[in-house]
Simulated assay, not measured.
Amino acid sequence: MKYCPHCGKPVRENAKFCPSCGETLTVSQDQPATNTNQIKGIYDSATAKLNQYTGEKGAVKVNISDLFSEVFKHHSKKEADAIFIAGTESTTPALADVSDEWAKPWLFSRILIGFLLAFVVLLYMAVSFHNDKAVPGLILVGAFAVPFSGLVFFFEANAFKDISLFEVIKVFFIGGIFSLVVTLFLYQFVTFSTTSQYLGVLTLKDSVSIGVVEELGKVLIISYFISQLNVRHILDGILIGAAVGAG
């Protein structure tokens, strides 16, 4: 079986055109398909369907090494400041000026390293000096390290730059708090097993229920903010989701 490199759909071995997307198939694609090609075909097919929601066609091509190529390069404070100057009438670029290339986030890595260094120092204080006052900071830093760094990553990756830092902070705090409120309300409709209630041991059903309730609570709040902010791009939706999740 051969797969179209543009949309990932299966095509006949001797086909010159893809029946799904209409793209021309080159002669080099007549070679027998390997397991790698089959996996690539499944990935291309899945991302091509998702890409249709953006008004585009074809599979989504992601180059991981290119995506993180700016992480290990030197960047100035001016470059970092420019990242957060976004989302206003004077700084939001026109749609025609938005690059069609993948963004190359880098600031998130510095923030993640800062969190990890703070975590190591607080851990050393708590263990070596038996300083109990370091424990709350240790918990706080450990809880925020990945979610907050991830939020900065998606803020950098939002090529449309049409959501301001103020809006992100608002979603972070308000969305985070109300997603907890909604989640606690949804918990009223969930029953846990006797083992969980009396012995503190979660069963598989309990664990699945917790995951469903907590994610549903976040989805409801994310849907509200997407509606309120009149989001038009998938990257904007991902940023809002990251803000609510981190909050």
Rank of each mutant, 00 (worst) to 15 (best):
P5L: 04
P5W: 04
G8C: 07
A15K: 01
P19M: 00
S20C: 09
T24Q: 10
T24G: 08
V27W: 10
S28T: 12
T36H: 11
N37W: 09
I39A: 14
I42W: 14
I42L: 14
D44T: 08
D44K: 13
S45P: 00
A48P: 04
K57D: 07
V60K: 15
S65R: 11
S69N: 06
S69C: 01
E70A: 07
K73M: 04
K78I: 12
I85Y: 03
A86M: 12
P93E: 00
E101Y: 12
K104G: 00
S109V: 10
S109M: 08
L117E: 08
L123Q: 09
Y124R: 00
A126D: 00
S128Q: 04
D132Y: 15
A134E: 00
L140R: 09
G142K: 10
A143N: 14
A143C: 11
L151W: 08
F153D: 07
A157V: 01
N158L: 05
A159D: 04
K161F: 01
I163K: 03
F166K: 15
F172S: 06
F178H: 01
F178M: 11
S179Y: 01
V181S: 02
L186K: 02
Y187H: 11
S196Q: 13
D206Q: 02
S207P: 11
S209G: 07
G211K: 05
E214F: 14
E214Y: 10
E215I: 12
I221R: 08
N230C: 05
D236F: 05
G237Q: 04
V244P: 07
G247F: 06
